[in-house]
């Protein structure tokens, strides 16, 4: 019997719940594990535009889902991540990091129905009214994922954005995108509605400026932008329509440390309602 030929994998984009090739038809080579390479889609600005459309379309349904439901879906994603541990390890990601990333999902999943209690509440007002504040999602968030740690960094920027009902377009690390594409496969099988998370692989200079300037993107998380000049130019573009901007994360940041609430609360808007008291 002849020797079996292994099936090589094509790593594609993740847009609107599907895995399309880049609209431009391009791909590029990256290192995969110890001594093999993989072809990864090289996204164009049109892919970025399509991803924003998908994220916007998914927004109302995801934000309108109950906090409990969002938490369950995120928890389900953690289950799937746990199940694919070996696959991530094979990509060269340390087992400890996969565990930490799984724990991070679970931690953020738990916040879905607690965040409104921490960030919202009843305001005392001098009148016959109930005055209530609740946190609402900002909308579509464009995220530049940190290059390292590849998986934990990615989870640490995606989960806090989507747990409150935002939808995201993630520009994966150009040098290490396999963790991102594999995470997309995890999310696609985790009941996460199509378009809530969209992942682009390729050059940051190509996709991120169009996301930063896009009028239908509400916030920009520059976590993984190492180039100070690029970060500044992106902030300038984002200022055009007053996007909320999260600055780049310093290279010496400890992604394993307790992240706190900052990443979640940065992507919220507060809605306050006045309601007349009866009687």
């Amino acid at each position: 019997m002849s020797e079996r030929v292994t099936v090589r994998k094509t790593y594609k984009l993740y847009i609107g719940g599907k895995f399309p090739r880049s609209e431009s038809g391009r791909s590029y080579l990256v290192q995969s594990g110890e001594n093999s390479t993989a072809n990864v889609a090289l996204a164009s600005r049109k892919d970025a535009r399509d991803a924003v459309l998908a994220a916007r379309a998914a927004g109302s349904g995801w934000a309108g889902a109950t906090a409990y439901n969002r938490g369950q879906i995120l928890y389900r994603a953690a289950e799937m991540l746990e199940g694919r541990r070996e696959q991530f390890v094979a990509l060269g990601i340390p087992g400890d990091e996969v565990d930490a990333a799984t724990d991070r999902w679970v931690w953020y999943a738990g916040w879905s129905d607690k965040l409104p209690q921490v960030r919202g509440g009843v305001n005392p007002v001098a009148g016959p009214y109930f005055n209530l504040s609740t946190p609402e999602p900002t909308g579509v968030v464009a995220v530049v994922a940190p290059a390292a740690p590849a998986l934990l960094g990615l989870v640490s920027v995606i989960a806090p954005a989507i747990v409150s009902g935002n939808t995201v377009v993630v520009a994966a690390s150009p040098t290490d995108p396999l963790a991102a594409v594999t995470l997309a496969e995890v999310l696609a099988t985790a009941d996460l509605p199509a378009g809530v998370v969209n992942i682009l692989t390729g050059r940051l200079q190509e996709t991120v400026p169009s996301l930063a300037g896009h009028r239908d993107v509400n916030a920009l998380d520059l976590a993984g932008v190492a180039d100070a000049e690029l970060a500044t130019s992106l902030e300038v573009k984002a200022a055009e329509n007053l996007k909320r901007v999260l600055r780049p994360v310093p290279a010496n940041y400890d992604w394993y440390a307790n992240p706190g609430l900052a990443r979640m609360t940065a992507l919220l808007e507060t809605k306050t309602v006045w309601h007349p008291k009866g009687g």
């Binding site: 169009s210 896009h214 009028r215 239908d216 329509n241």
Partner: peptide
């Protein structure tokens, strides 16, 4: 303008 527009505008 060179930037993608949004339906909000």
């Amino acid at each position: 303008t060179g930037e993608y527009a949004g339906p909000d505008y």
